[in-house]
């Protein structure tokens, strides 16, 4: 039933170079191996929540790899693996609903920010996110006082990313800490950022190289060129959110 409901829509909406950073995911190449999920969690200090909470729909992963079934045995097919993360909408529904500007648009990077320290946890943004890309810190998952096993595990926390406590919404940031770091490096060397210089953790890990990242306001970049192929589409494009993640349809 619900199988084909969220396959990427092709509406030939012109890119118009809206936005700055973009990602292209080739569903034909994605093997669902979850390396991006692990890499993202390691890079962004995403906590694990344990069996009960994970089964209750409280996984904190910033990427989830969706898959559906079509047909029935023996002509059954698994639909193409579809990694879904924050689509970094140009017109994001999550932004205007936050009463305290915790979910806010970055004018300089054209990304949706989640300012953790500003978040008061109304969770309206998560309701209003059509992609269900936001995760909420239901508990103090990172507090070693409550989870003694973290005392050693905390050592690998990334100092460039804020560790979130309970009651805070979070989501994929396009690894903005890496964007900032690369920008800083480029600035100190007095040059522009090169194409492919900023690599988010998911794209970096992906063994199938299914994820490409870069500037979409520059038509010469890999990501811009991949985004204009005939297989390209966006999730729920009819909502007019202008997402910055482009999906290349699988199986073709």
């Amino acid at each position: 039933m619900a199988n084909d409901l969220n396959s990427p829509v092709k509406m030939n909406m012109s890119q118009d170079a809206q936005g700055k950073w973009g990602m292209v995911i080739d569903q034909d190449l994605c093997t669902g191996c979850q390396a991006c999920v692990a890499a993202c969690s390691m890079e962004n200090n995403v906590p694990f929540v344990g069996e009960v909470d994970a089964g209750y729909g409280r996984n904190m992963q910033w990427i989830r790899i969706e898959r559906f079934w079509s047909g029935s045995f023996p002509d059954i097919k698994m639909t193409s693996y579809q990694p879904v993360m924050c689509q970094q909408c140009h017109k994001a529904p999550c932004e205007p609903v936050c009463p305290v500007y915790a979910s806010v648009h970055s004018e300089s990077e054209d990304l949706n920010l989640q300012v953790y320290n500003r978040c008061i946890g109304t969770r309206y943004c998560a309701n209003n996110c059509p992609y269900q890309a936001r995760t909420f810190n239901w508990r103090d998952y990172q507090d070693a006082r409550q989870r003694p096993e973290l005392v050693t595990l905390q050592n690998h926390l990334n100092p460039d990313v804020t560790v979130r406590r309970r009651g805070v919404m979070e989501k994929c940031t396009f690894c903005i800490q890496r964007i900032r770091h690369t920008e800083d490096t480029a600035e100190s060397e007095n040059r522009e950022i090169r194409d492919g210089e900023v690599v988010p953790a998911c794209a970096q890990a992906c063994p199938a190289s299914a994820i490409t990242f870069g500037r979409i306001d520059d038509p010469t970049t890999q990501v811009s060129q991949a985004a204009v192929t005939s297989r390209a589409g966006h999730l729920l494009e009819d909502l007019g959110t202008i997402p910055h993640v482009t999906y290349l349809a699988g199986g073709a």
């Binding site: 390396a35 890499a39 690998h156 190289s209």
Partner: peptide
Amino acid sequence: VNLGKTCARGQATLEGLYNP
């Protein structure tokens, strides 16, 4: 072997190093 790529297990190797 991997030309810069890793699998999920490789990513999680740190949790072995810092395993409780």
